[in-house]
Design a binder for these strands. Structure first.
Lengths: 222, 222
DNA sequence: TCCCGGCGTTAAGACTCGCGTAAGGTTCGA
DNA sequence: TCGAACCTTACGCGAGTCTTAACGCCGGGA
């Protein structure tokens, strides 16, 4: 795997500085200035993501949430304000580290290396939950009834449930991950997709449990 | 594996504060005041190690190096000085994070959780009280009778009691945590939920004791 | 350009399930 | 023994969920 790092930073001077430092440290930085541009990128293409919280366009927190639901990639937050509440919120959302400006580029590099070094056990692009096998790269799902074809939304829902396999996943998280943003969470759209998903899962549908008042959970059958 | 955390900290006030916060967050802190005492411990017995760099006896950096050569356990550094050179040195030596005093306990907890989250997404955030095991992520409870499904309110009640395991919890606190606010505390709603909870706990119901005039307590059975 | 199939969304009715309340019984402490 | 605090059961309402059906958008193909 490459040493590619995604840097989301709108400050031109700072961004250039970080890019230079990362390059010298042997990384392959990929710099995006705009939050909306970062939305479309696939987090799994990168080793680490360095994210500035104060962005024009999409807010940094939204990006973080988005990345977290989609992938396991370590995310390191960069922020102007040394605000503890913000810090805690970021870390709770799944960020792996938090650096406040101003910082020395060397510190950032050291922290990135600390992220990378961590045992990344979940490198596989294939998740197995009971009788359900999900190939994230081929976007293919196999059950005990054979291979089945899912729509994009259905696949995203199942993929997120599989990544968090065994644990209950909030309705909100599922909506964030699978449906276009700016959705009215009160609508019953998600239910419909879940319903169709269950229909396709057929004999393995029992693995997709509903957690009342919370959301859903994908459990191993046995 | 348990949620045991090793805290190496010589400052008595700060140490106690951290221990309290960690306990409330569902961890099982193990506090050592002396660096030399920490030398002999096996790092693999702990989920995370929180290490103060300014210690009497063995220097913190030495301990860090020692742990790193022995084990893969995440180490989180605590330091009085906000010295970048020190920070970089620590992170290069393999520390997973670096927090400078003064800090808010909540921040430390959030950072610890960020460390813990990585290796295995399943099985973390788990509280064991006697025969009752509570998986906060899966929202699942296992007793000696097997897995049982709780309603949201019942789960919140049990979770709060488990977090404060062994100590009495006020009725008000339980109502705040589990029930919709703006409720009439004088009513017998909480009793009903407790009753239902006991019914589901079956043979382990004895662990959920009534503290007369105060509230309830979840105790280890044996 | 028009048609058609796939897909996401909305709407609506039926249904399940959790929650709060009431009411009567029981236990505890003084 | 008395009263307050607590336990338990039963029941109805309403929130949350499931399912079916239909609408609208967008793409490819004729």
């Amino acid at each position: 795997m490459s040493n590619r790092i995604l840097l989301v930073e709108d400050d031109l001077a700072l961004g250039q500085q970080v890019v230079d430092t990362l390059s010298q440290a042997g990384f392959d930085p990929h710099w995006v200035q705009d939050g909306d541009a970062a939305r479309g990128l696939n987090p799994d293409d990168y080793r680490v993501i360095v994210l500035d919280l104060m962005l024009p366009g999409t807010y940094g927190m939204d990006l973080l949430k988005r990345y977290r639901t989609k992938s396991e990639v370590p995310v390191l937050i960069l922020s102007a304000r040394d605000d503890t509440a913000d810090k805690i919120r970021g870390l709770k959302l799944g960020a792996d580290d938090y650096v406040t400006k101003p910082f020395f580029p060397e510190e950032l590099v050291a922290r990135i290396q600390a992220c990378v070094r961590r045992p990344n056990l979940v490198g596989t692009k294939r998740i197995v939950v009971g009788a359900i096998q999900i190939d994230l790269e081929r976007r293919e799902v196999t059950t005990s009834d054979g291979t089945l074809s899912l729509t994009p939304v259905e696949f995203e829902i199942l993929a997120l449930l599989a990544r968090r396999k065994g644990s209950a996943v909030t309705r909100d998280a599922l909506v964030d991950a699978a449906l276009d943003t700016a959705h009215d969470r009160s609508r019953r759209t998600l239910d419909v997709h879940i319903s169709r998903l269950r229909g396709k899962l057929r004999s393995d549908a029992a693995q997709l449990e509903t957690v009342w008042g919370i959301g859903y959970r994908l459990s191993e059958g046995s």
